[in-house]
């Protein structure tokens, strides 16, 4: 994007949409356990995630485009997670926050899903048990880069988020 003079700029539609999208995520916290407390810490005044434009935390999947899975997902919760994910409109991104969501963590057990990527696609894995707020913020900022990379890939004919094969 280039700023022309004082009051208008020229750009193409795609980069403009990307720019808007990556700077104003509406996250949906799918918080189940300890990580959810650290997520609260991240959006609270001390760390203040709104500095990046991500403060509109929505609890309805239909109004959000970034799902942050914070906490252990059990087999009992799995159908719920799947359904919530399906209810989000495209394009959508998923951050898997913490060891449990990434891999089941140290719960190698009879009722715990060994990573949410068993049922939904994940864009960014944030390690930690729980990750510190800095870690979570770093993870979410990686999504920005991912959007940029996807745009470049799409110029070469790659598929973008939310696009389905024609």
């Amino acid at each position: 994007m280039e700023v022309q003079g004082e009051s208008w700029l020229t750009t193409k539609l795609e980069p403009f949409v990307d720019w808007a999208q990556k700077n104003s995520f509406w996250p949906l916290p799918f918080g189940t356990a300890c990580c959810a407390i650290e997520f609260m810490g991240t959006v609270s005044s001390h760390y203040d995630m709104s500095r990046f434009g991500y403060e509109v935390v929505r609890f309805s999947p239909r109004q959000s485009d970034l799902m942050i899975v914070a906490g252990t997902i059990t087999d009992k919760m799995a159908p719920v997670l799947k359904r919530i994910y399906d209810q989000m409109p495209d394009p959508k991104w998923v951050v898997s926050m913490g060891a449990c969501a990434c891999s089941g963590g140290f719960y190698r057990a009879y009722h715990v899903m060994q990573g949410i990527d068993e049922i939904i696609p994940v864009d960014i894995y944030v390690p930690g048990c729980p990750p510190s707020p800095e870690g979570l913020m770093y993870g979410i900022l990686q999504i920005k880069e991912k959007i940029d990379r996807e745009r470049k890939a799409s110029r070469r004919g790659g598929k973008r988020k939310g696009e389905h094969a024609a």
Binding site: T74, K76, F106, Y107, R108
Partner: peptide, 22 residues
């Protein structure tokens, strides 16, 4: 039960110190 993480079963498979993080 949506967050039943089997803590009690897990502690049976770990040593006494390893239970502390659970």
């Amino acid at each position: 039960g949506y967050l039943h993480r089997c803590m009690e079963k897990m502690s049976e498979t770990h040593t006494w110190q390893q239970v502390i993080p659970y």
